[in-house]
Nucleic acid binder design. Structure first.
Lengths: 193, 193
DNA sequence: TATCACATCGGACAAATGTCCTTTTCAGTT
DNA sequence: AACTGAAAAGGACATTTGTCCGATGTGATA
């Protein structure tokens, strides 16, 4: 349940199914990989060969706009999946995934991911739920962001994730909120954070 | 393809499957309904009994925040589906759907929608694609909005949908962009629209 | 230690946006 | 025709946010 409100996205059900069930059913189709901080796991406007599910660590998902601005879509953590939209639609990736901490992840070939969707009803249902949750979360977050002051937004993040300032750079927080670092600092000062 | 970039969401593939295939396979499970402008088709924080797919007309999907502000998530048109997230997750609705023009729609009981997901692989795939498309579109739209000036955003909308001003109220456009009508008017004047 | 790159911090000013308000327009109703 | 309510329009001012900039601190490395 708390999966739904946090700025750092997780998906316990999906991770559990992967580690408890899927890993025993698939022979070498589920690869384990490790990424270092600042490493690009998936790049924008590229073909996507693998679907990833995070086992541990944290990554950011962001889009770089034509004017050079980055916009952080979400922060991913345990159980969060990415590359799945591109696997389903066959499109090029529309965002960039970059490790913030060391990231352990499972990766599955996009083609095999689609096979699993067809052949494994439990997996199919988990992915449907994962997509539905992402949409739900995204809608609520953007509605809140757009309709509230910067200070309200910061208080909300602070409440969701008290270690925010220590673990995520100011620039990343600003890019997540769609503001500049200068504005962020002003609001933090005003709030006495 | 153009389905993906427009502010008014459509889904031709899904509508086609419903009208060409599904309607012949399901006995009375697919109901046709009509809504008048300003009618609330689906209300926020309510249990969702039906999944809707729009046959014709236009509706807005918005969230009302605690401070009274409305934020318009998307505009829906032919083939667009809603209520599906709630059917999949069993949650209460998180947004409100309101008809702008007269809306013709198909509705399916939430429970039967889930049965279809399990029993009809083609339908399942179409829904997966629909969710993936919505996520993709939402991510791109918000990244663009946050990283560009209001005037850039307006020019982009104008290009996507030239009849914008005539067909959608100023208040709705402002709520879609997360700004006030005053700001909208200023930018329109500056652009000479 | 010295140096470099990088994040952080905040002042001063400019630009964008919101708030509050009055006026106008227009469609629907009596 | 007269009236009404809703949408639109824009002036005046306050507030928020961005831009530009130089200062400070810190961790890595030669």
């Amino acid at each position: 349940m708390s999966d739904v409100i946090k700025m750092i996205r997780k998906n316990a059900d999906l991770l559990q199914y992967i580690t408890k069930v899927l890993i025993h059913k698939t022979d070498n189709k589920l690869l384990e990989v490790l990424y270092s901080p600042t490493e690009i796991i998936l790049d924008q406007r590229k073909k996507v060969f693998y679907v990833h599910i995070i086992k541990s660590g944290m990554a950011k998902c962001y889009l770089t706009e034509d004017n050079g601005n980055d916009f952080i879509q979400e922060f991913f953590s345990e159980g969060e999946i990415f590359g799945e939209l591109e696997a389903i639609n066959g499109d090029l990736s529309f965002c960039c995934i970059e490790a913030i901490t060391p990231v352990q992840a499972y990766k599955i070939e996009a083609q095999y991911f689609n096979t699993l969707l067809e052949k494994d009803p439990t997996f199919n249902k988990l992915i449907l739920k994962a997509l539905a949750k992402k949409l739900n979360y995204t809608a609520i977050r953007h509605a809140y962001n757009q309709s509230h002051t910067l200070e309200d937004n910061l208080l909300r993040l602070q409440k969701q994730y008290p270690a925010l300032i220590e673990q995520i750079s100011k620039q990343d927080i600003a890019n997540y909120l769609g503001i500049t670092v200068r504005s962020l600092n002003r609001s933090l000062a005003k709030l006495g954070i």
